[in-house]
């Protein structure tokens, strides 16, 4: 009755709300934890102590090098057709503007294709992208490539409609990427509301002028750590089930949802198993990644360090899409492994979360999944998730203790059973 015991402890027992309260203590104390910042390193040290005090095994920090970008002071003011202070968030790794800022006329486009068609008009201008929201993975291309495409046609800066399906005048930051051989121009996200307003103004033929000031700076790489803790396997200790979330966040809100929730339900999964005195045959390894937001930087260095043991990884799990009430588990793996995982999910009948979807993935575990290791992630209300994603709204007020209890139970049952089954999950 292991599954029922875990569910009982997590959802109805004395471990209720523990993951929420632990998370609140950290993010209330530390706040957001951007890569390269002192607050991230302080959070890592706190988690190192937490995991030791919790009685987990082989608690250690694996050093990695991470990017260090700081936002500085930033502003965007519409000067024409009227004075209007705009809410903006510079995009990660963007360069800053000169101290006096960039003041230029605006060209509003709704797609990369329109930008190409109107390329001659873009020279010397600030390009504003008012791209429609399709879904996150499609639309985020504008945030990632917007500056490069605008620079190719001679723009001075780019302002990108926030990638979100809901907005209450809330800018959403995120990483962007420059391209070798293409000029670097400052780039920031603006609110859906301002992007749509400027689109309407432009369609009436109104001239728009904006003054953009960004104090963003890219510093040399910083020292950071992936945080690791284990329950060492009783029979096949060198075989691993990896349970993870990332500890870094953007410099907005508290970084509670993205990805404090994922990190803390992963810790909770091991805590629940330890509290019940359970020790699976395989090692359960908790990893709290660093520098996920810059593109899985900490996780890539973990993969490089550990990939020789890839045949020992039965399953890699990452929760990085919210810890609201789970709809079920996303899974990537062979048909035979999928058959087995369906049986595992049936154990969660008591909390009615038995569905197994496709597309198990996560920025930090994709290296392993692409190399053939089965992968799993939680699926929950993604519309709600992306409404707060990378915005000042990412605070504890978004999180729900009862939902985190259930997410922790799912995470613990799945990780424990796969770690304790006699057979490793079969590969494709």
């Amino acid at each position: 009755d292991v599954a029922k015991s875990i569910i009982k402890l997590a959802v109805y027992g004395k471990a209720q709300n523990r993951s929420y309260e632990r998370l609140a203590l950290l993010v209330d104390t530390i706040g957001p934890r951007p890569s390269g910042s002192k607050s991230l390193e302080k959070a890592i040290q706190i988690m190192y102590q937490n995991l030791q005090q919790d009685g987990l095994e082989n608690v250690h920090l694996e050093p990695v090098k991470v990017p260090h970008w700081e936002r500085g002071v930033e502003s965007a003011v519409m000067l024409e057709p009227r004075f209007h202070n705009m809410a903006i968030l510079g995009l990660g790794s963007s360069i800053g503007t000169p101290p006096e800022g960039i003041t230029a006329e605006v060209l509003v486009v709704t797609s990369f294709e329109e930008l190409q068609r109107r390329a001659p008009e873009a020279r010397g201008k600030i390009v504003v992208y008012n791209q429609p929201y399709v879904n996150y993975s499609t639309t985020v291309q504008y945030r990632v490539r917007g500056a490069v495409e605008a620079a190719k046609v001679g723009a001075l800066a780019s302002l990108i409609r926030s990638v979100t399906s809901l907005s209450i005048y809330s800018p959403h930051t995120g990483i962007q990427e420059y391209q070798v051989g293409v000029a670097k121009i400052p780039t920031a996200c603006i609110t859906v509301e301002d992007a749509e307003m400027m689109s309407r103004m432009a369609s009436r033929g109104t001239k728009i002028v904006i003054q953009l000031k960004m104090g963003a700076k890219n510093y040399p790489e910083a020292e950071s750590y992936n945080t690791v803790a284990e329950i060492i396997g009783s029979k096949y200790p060198e075989q691993v089930v990896l349970v993870s979330g990332h500890l870094d966040s953007w410099d907005v809100g508290q970084g509670a949802m993205d990805d404090g929730g994922g990190a803390f339900i992963s810790w909770e999964a091991l805590s629940l198993i330890k509290d019940l005195g359970l020790r699976p045959k395989r090692t359960l390894r908790l990893v709290l990644w660093t520098a996920e937001e810059q593109g899985g930087v900490g996780a890539f260095q973990y993969y490089q360090l550990h990939k020789e043991a890839i045949s020992n990884y039965s399953l890699v799990m990452e929760s990085d899409s919210g810890t609201f009430l789970p709809y079920g588990l996303q899974f990537t793996g062979s048909d035979k492994a999928r058959t087995i995982m369906k049986e595992v999910m049936n154990l969660l009948q008591p909390i009615n979360i038995t569905r197994l979807f496709r597309g198990g993935e996560g920025t930090d575990i994709n290296y392993w999944i692409q190399a053939g290791v089965p992968g799993a992630s939680l699926l929950d209300d993604l519309n709600k998730y992306f409404s707060f994603h990378h915005s000042h709204g990412d605070t504890m007020s978004v999180m729900d203790p009862k939902e985190m209890n259930v997410a922790s139970a799912v995470w613990a049952v799945v990780s424990y059973v796969v770690a304790d089954m006699e057979a490793m999950l079969p590969r494709s």
């Binding site: 009755d1 292991v2 599954a3 029922k4 096949y236 060198e238 075989q239 045949s311 020992n312 035979k336 058959t339 087995i340 049986e343 595992v344 049936n346 154990l347 049952v413 424990y416 059973v417 304790d420 089954m421 006699e422 057979a423 490793m424 079969p426 590969r427």
Partner: peptide, 24 residues
């Protein structure tokens, strides 16, 4: 491709299903 011969080929899916249900 596993170390201890505890791979699926040596045990039928039925065995594994039975094993998993024991965790219920």
């Amino acid at each position: 491709n596993t170390i201890h011969g505890n791979d699926v080929s040596q045990r039928t899916l039925e065995d594994i299903k039975e094993e998993i249900s024991s965790y219920e």
